[in-house]
Design a binder for these strands. Structure first.
Length: 301
DNA sequence: CGCCTTTGACCGGCGC
DNA sequence: GCGCCGGTCAAAGGCG
């Protein structure tokens, strides 16, 4: 299953005005090098007006980036809803052609993601089972070296391996992990190399951690590997952690940044997608530096 | 010594 | 009821 692997990672081109872009970068790099290199006296240090102008320009750029991010998010959401519209039938076909065993039913639930409730049929079939088995199942794809036989996915959490099995539909073994950070944490993880693409590890998470992420350094390692949220399989890539969002809701997705309700793990996965894009990280760094400068300015005034 | 991985055995659900 | 299969257990051994 999951024959339609779609790399849903965001490819964000933040190049607002291509004609100005190289110019802007040159200016920015010049400014940043001046900002960092303290030992070297800067011409701009002697020209506060130039600095102020630069600050204003960066502030404008920051606003523009924020606006663009919202637009990109809206487009992403509309694409997401389009995918949701197209997937149900295909998913049903995939599920019905295979044996309706427990695990496979769970996998079908994964295809539908957390929206499994939407597609559950009334006569209590496969989808009902899938819904009953797990309410919080997330799947992620991680790029890995095919020569590396280990099924290691660094996501910042501590895992204890408790089993390994070769499954019927995949020649590579599936590893079973439990969260070992907290005894009360019952989160489980299955890691298996994709049958279609051996360079991809499929990590399936069950449950929600009841503790903080112990190691963000490890998580960042995972990000470098390129964790791809399984958005194509139904997990709505929203910062909002409410997972049982209906299909209709998904269509109305708007950028929601509700900090208190954010699921840290979900955020990590989203960040991972964004950080894979070098232009995005560069633009973000510039935007953040603009924010910092704004803050410094506020402090001094 | 504590924590981890490995691995064969076991269990339970499901289809026939 | 039997066999298949995925998931889990638990003993043994490795490692720092």
């Amino acid at each position: 299953m999951d024959s339609t692997f779609v790399d849903t990672s965001l490819t964000i081109d933040l190049n607002v005005n291509p004609s100005q872009h190289s110019d802007e970068i040159a200016k920015r790099q010049s400014f940043q090098s001046d900002f960092v290199n303290e030992s070297k006296p800067s011409v701009k240090e002697e020209q506060p007006d130039v600095l102020m102008e630069e600050l204003n320009r960066m502030r404008m750029e920051n606003k523009q980036l924020t606006k663009m991010l919202l637009i990109v998010w809206e487009k992403y959401s509309s694409l997401q809803s389009h995918v949701l519209e197209l997937t149900p039938k295909a998913s049903e076909d995939v599920c019905s052609e295979s044996r309706k065993r427990k695990a496979e039913g769970e996998d079908c639930g994964n295809v539908l993601g957390t929206n499994a409730n939407i597609y559950s049929n009334s006569d209590g079939g496969l989808f009902k089972r899938a819904r009953e088995i797990k309410t919080s199942v997330k799947r992620f794809y991680v790029r890995a070296d095919p020569s590396d036989a280990s099924l290691v996915v660094k996501d910042g959490y501590q895992w204890r391996k408790y089993g390994q099995k070769v499954t019927k539909d995949n020649p590579s073994p599936r590893a079973y992990y439990r969260c070992s950070f907290s005894p009360s944490c019952s989160v489980k993880r299955k890691v298996q190399r994709s049958a279609e693409d051996p360079t991809v590890l499929v990590a399936t998470y069950e449950g929600v951690h009841n503790h903080l992420q112990p190691s963000r350094a490890d998580a960042s390692l995972g990000l470098i590997q390129g964790v791809i949220p399984a958005t194509a399989t139904g997990s709505v890539p929203t910062i909002d952690s409410r997972e049982n969002r209906s299909c209709g809701d998904a269509r109305k997705l708007v950028p929601e940044i509700e900090v208190p309700a954010v699921n840290p793990f979900l955020v990590e996965q989203m960040v991972s997608s964004l950080t894979r894009n070098s232009s995005f990280t560069a633009a973000l760094a510039a935007a953040i530096s603009g924010r910092i400068l704004d803050y410094d300015l506020m402090e001094t005034l």
